[in-house]
């Protein structure tokens, strides 16, 4: 059987979601219906403001692209379909990219969803576990045979995605001191690598072959199988260039790094 406390919280939750004031809740609270409606509106406003603020922190580029008003509307609708499930608001917004893809207001701009997906990877990288990078000296010391047989753990902050849209360029154009102008970004497919060196998260354009290779690395492949996977899907894959890029960006964690907490 439902306790009265349980019933009260269920009614309060209903009042926060919908504009309606359940009669049982009105009876349980001090004040006229009009007064209570105003006070619950205040709570509802606080809840949605907190959610909107959390989304704005995680998706600044999306907000800049669609404008504040449209973003606020999107955030409100998102909160209704995918309400927060965590007391830590940094976890709120994981499904925003998928939601943006399906929303009538934004579905006609298909790149928005992929930009959102990239921003979520950046957001997660910011709070990912710290781990030392795989030192370059360790790699140069390897013979080709040793390198092919090697398995390097990925850094906890490392993530990537492939898009049919220029997500990397769009994201970069919104960063301060960017040399890319948004109006000059050409429509094309782009793949993006997200890494964090010390505290700074960077987004780097990568090739389709990089994505295939990184997928293989994540699945635990050795370097031999990784290169094969990349070449299989991308005949132009240049391992030497890609490997250098991975090391520069901080894709790998030192093998003896402490495990993520």
């Amino acid at each position: 059987m439902q306790s009265s406390l349980e019933r009260l919280q269920a009614d309060f939750a209903t009042a926060l979601r919908d504009a309606a004031l359940p009669p049982a809740l009105a009876q349980a609270l001090v004040g006229s219906d009009a007064q209570l409606a105003a006070r619950l509106r205040l709570y509802r406003g606080n809840v949605f403001a907190a959610w909107r603020h959390a989304l704005a922190l995680a998706y600044p580029v999306l907000q800049a692209l669609v404008g504040s008003d449209c973003f606020d509307t999107l955030a409100e609708r998102y909160g209704r379909v995918h309400p927060s499930r965590d007391g830590d608001l940094n976890c709120f917004g994981a499904a925003f990219a998928a939601f943006v893809a399906g929303d009538a207001a934004t579905a006609k701009l298909p790149y928005l969803s992929d930009v959102a997906a990239l921003e979520w990877l950046v957001h997660r990288a910011q709070r990912a576990a710290d781990a030392p990078m795989l030192p370059r000296e360790r790699l140069v010391a390897l013979s080709p045979g040793e390198l092919l047989a090697a398995r390097f753990p990925l850094h906890p902050a490392c993530a990537w995605l492939a898009s049919a849209h220029p997500v990397c360029s769009i994201w970069t154009a919104h960063q301060t001191h960017s040399t890319i102008e948004l109006s000059r970004v050409a429509p094309r497919a782009e793949c993006a690598l997200v890494t964090r060196r010390r505290w700074r998260v960077t987004v780097t354009p990568i090739t389709r072959g990089d994505v295939l290779a990184l997928d293989a690395l994540r699945a635990g492949a050795d370097m031999d199988a990784t290169i094969s996977a990349a070449l299989h899907g991308d005949r132009g894959f240049e391992f030497a260039k890609a490997f250098l890029r991975w090391i520069e960006c901080g894709v790998f964690a030192a093998a003896d790094a402490p495990p993520a907490r």
Binding site: L5, A10, F12, R85
Partner: peptide, 25 residues
Amino acid sequence: SWGAGAHTTFNELLPLPLTHAALHL
């Protein structure tokens, strides 16, 4: 305070009725 329902966390400090049941919980 309380702050969550069965399917939603409101991320807000919501008031509890100050009852014996609330004190117990």
